[in-house]
Amino acid sequence: MNAQQTTTNQLPEKKYIRSHEPIFWGLFGAGGMLTAFLTPVMVLVTGLLIPLGLIDAEHLSYEKLHQFVSSWYGAPIVLVLVALPLWHTLHRIFHSLHDLGIKRGRDWQQVICYGFAFAVSVFVFTLLLQMLSL
């Protein structure tokens, strides 16, 4: 019995440290899903069809857009469309830095990458809040 106890005691109890990655991975996944489904059509409309006049610019006029953006339902939609992809892309950029062997200052890389996504999200959020008319 005693001998058995010593053998079990000899095995060092391994310490497991939980990662906080699930938060960022969740945002990454949601942003990636949105990017996969909506970014192509968004780029097509805002970057190509409207500027090239293939769709009448009337459809993205100041009036129409401002009205949409300042509505209770339009504001969150625009926030998600503009900000969520950043949580996807900056997550990837953060991990790509590791892939490229840039090992120094991983903590700072993390703060800068997610901090950037956060800052832009807050920026857009504040603008939308200003424009909101209930």
Binding site: T46, Y62, V69, P85, L86, H88, T89, R92
Partner: peptide, 25 residues
């Protein structure tokens, strides 16, 4: 993974558009 660089820039263009929208017509 690199696709995220261009998509980041695109999102910034949109964010800028929201900013310009808030400044008026």
């Amino acid at each position: 993974e690199g696709s995220s660089i261009l998509i980041t820039v695109y999102s910034l263009i949109l964010a800028w558009g929201v900013f310009r929208l808030s400044q008026g017509e």
